[in-house]
Design a protein around this nucleic acid. Structure first.
Lengths: 194, 194
DNA sequence: CTATATTTTCAGAAAATACTGAATTTTGAG
DNA sequence: CTCAAAATTCAGTATTTTCTGAAAATATAG
């Protein structure tokens, strides 16, 4: 690996993290190198920096392209293909989440839905279905939340996340303002669901 | 695998998903079996259901215990150890997120912090640091948000998530109510940061 | 304390995954 | 169209990870 120490440390750590998330180490290295690169790189640039085989880099780039995580940047007068990561890290994370959702969450929801449609033959299966239902509903809650806030432009999303649980205070205030004295509490949050 | 079809389908899918998330397939199977079981199971119950070796189950259970994902439930008059998953799936997911944060996010933040302290020797390293800073700040935003909403009790958290981006509407309303006419917009969200 | 049931450890086998170099295919300049 | 540069594929090899059975350790009933 022929990288300045600071870059190498980052690349190695990123590869390590990737491998804990079902992404192969080398693919993690490749993405890390592209992420910190000053300019678009071609496959051979990556071979040089990482010291892995050309074919390995080729497969890694393909994998990253399947994840929609790369931008191709043609350089005039050069036949080789050059790659960068998106400049905006928020865009990178959005893509990452979208792709994982598509590959892992959506199929899981489909399976759970199918299993919940079946008629349980035994009390054992009936109990299993109840558990699956809990899981289904939680995953749905989380993905619906994500689908919803994902539509926000990045600035607004950052604002919202910065607030954290303080949002709850604002909701309580709304409750206080709009709930008739003596009325049931939290009406704002309950109504807002529609 | 000696499980009713519905259970088997779930267990297999869960194992598959686990293996994409850096959790070994069998450990996923073990957790799935425990998750849908009607009563606490001992290691041999799992051996019987999954058809893997006793030692493999032993290692898998240990792994799951290291993740804090199991509850031990002694059965009077039986020397064997019996296990269940927590009843509340929200608790399970909280634990899962907490543990992953501890193992993956926190060390990453430490590494990034260290690398950002270094004095860059070259323009290349300087540019890398700028990228790392973007990444650091985004991860911090997300983990701070999580640390904050995690404190909410489950009911409140569900309310908040159900709202999704509608929260923004409430914030805008707050803005309208409390910002003096002619004042700059979004003051509510900006102030709430303190 | 002894005998036995239960769990854990671990070295080696088996399986899965990643990597390479050589061969093939694709691309585009001339 | 031709040719060489570039990219991709893939069969075989290397590495890593997972799994097993046998042995060791631990726990508890009597």
């Amino acid at each position: 690996m022929t990288l300045p120490p600071l870059c190498e440390a980052f690349v190695l750590h990123f590869g390590e993290m990737g491998s804990r998330w079902g992404i192969n180490r080398t693919v993690g290295h490749i993405y890390a190198v592209l992420f910190i690169a000053e300019k678009p790189l071609c496959a051979d640039d990556i071979v040089e920096r990482l010291g892995v085989s050309r074919s390995n880099v080729s497969m890694g780039l393909k994998e990253l392209q399947n994840w929609n995580l790369l931008r191709q940047r043609p350089i005039p007068g050069d036949r080789r293909e050059f790659f960068t990561t998106p400049d905006d890290i928020h865009a990178i994370v959005r893509t990452l989440v979208d792709e994982r959702k598509k590959r892992e969450i959506d199929p899981t929801l489909t399976v759970l839905r199918e299993l919940l449609m079946q008629t349980p033959g035994t009390p054992e299966e009936q109990h299993a279905q109840a558990r699956l239902k809990d899981m289904y509903e939680l995953i749905e809650l989380l993905t619906n939340w994500y689908a919803d806030v994902q539509k926000l432009e990045t600035e607004r999303l950052i604002q919202l996340l910065s607030l954290g649980s303080k949002v709850v205070k604002v909701l309580e205030m709304k409750d206080r303002l709009f709930t008739l004295p003596g009325g049931r509490g939290h009406s704002a949050t309950q109504n807002a669901k529609d």
